[in-house]
């Protein structure tokens, strides 16, 4: 781990054994280090949930805010002082349910922040309730007979709303994830990096992925590289059941907000 950026006096952390969040944090910190950003000028912001505890373990200024509102707080920080680098940690419930409106409006504004969403398809901290990304048929404490609402595709949502950079990986794709976070950090405007990850305690236990490795195996085998799929699959072909695309979804240069004035 990158010791200079960690609050060692906060350890041990709250994450369960086998949780994907630590891996993702590690990838993000590695990417942040590669940017060469001044630790003093780097701010981590989060909402509520397991993912949102991450900033508390990082040795920078940080805001651990209210449920769903991290991006709105981040907007204030970045607009008031565009020289700061702002990274948001969030989860699927925090970002797409209670915080959905802030999410799409930040994409629309294309505010210069990077959002890393740890998408484990479940509310982990409150004990395993269904979220807006729980796949149809999957079990949670609030979908005991299987989820029957259609889930959000977070990457598609961010793209449609106007974000400059959108990528999706999993906690298995450590190298690609780190590279994508780095690209997101370096791309002016709003960047979303969605990371599908395992929650053995709340999601895995109820959905036949009891061991962390079970879900990692699923992520590895069902993640379809977007580039490859678009190259090889005939237009209009549906992805195989339970599969999902990973890769870089968009990288563009739409007008942005919250970058320092060119002086």
């Amino acid at each position: 781990m990158r010791d200079d950026w960690l609050r060692e006096d906060r350890l041990p952390h709250i994450y369960c054994a086998g949780c994907g969040n630590g891996t993702i944090m590690n990838c993000v910190l590695e990417a942040v280090e590669k940017t060469g950003w001044d630790q003093k000028k780097t701010i981590f912001i989060s909402g509520i949930g397991c993912s949102s505890r991450a900033p508390g373990y990082i040795l920078t200024d940080s805001l651990h805010t209210t449920h769903g509102r991290a991006i709105a707080f981040a907007t204030g920080v970045k607009m008031a002082n565009p020289s700061l680098h702002v990274v948001v940690f969030t989860g699927d419930g925090d970002l797409a349910a209670i915080g959905g409106n802030h999410f799409i409006h930040a994409c629309r504004r294309n505010i210069d922040i990077t959002v890393v969403c740890m998408n484990n398809h479940i509310y982990g901290m409150t004990g395993g309730q269904g979220s807006p990304t729980t796949p149809i048929g999957k079990t949670s404490t609030t979908t005991p007979y299987g989820a029957d609402e259609a889930p959000f595709d977070l990457a598609e949502l961010a793209m449609a709303a106007g974000a400059n950079y959108v990528a999706r990986w999993t906690s298995f794709h450590v190298k690609q994830l780190t590279d994508s976070v780095l690209t997101g950090l370096n791309t002016p405007g709003f960047s979303l990096i969605e990371v599908r990850c395992q929650c053995p305690t709340s999601y895995g236990r109820r959905n036949k992925y009891r061991e962390p490795v079970d879900y990692m195996t699923y992520l590895k085998s069902h993640a379809v590289l977007k580039e490859k799929w678009e190259r090889s699959a005939a237009p209009g072909t549906e992805l195989p059941v339970d599969s999902f695309l990973v890769g870089e979804f968009v990288r563009r240069q739409r007008p942005v907000m919250g970058v320092p004035d060119e002086a």
Binding site: D61, A72, T75, G76, N101, H102
Partner: peptide
Amino acid sequence: ACFIQMEDEIASIAAVIGAAWTGARS
């Protein structure tokens, strides 16, 4: 100085608090 019209009042006060932590009077 920065004026921003947020998407709702929840976001407004959130942004104000975020800005305050940069030292801005918000």
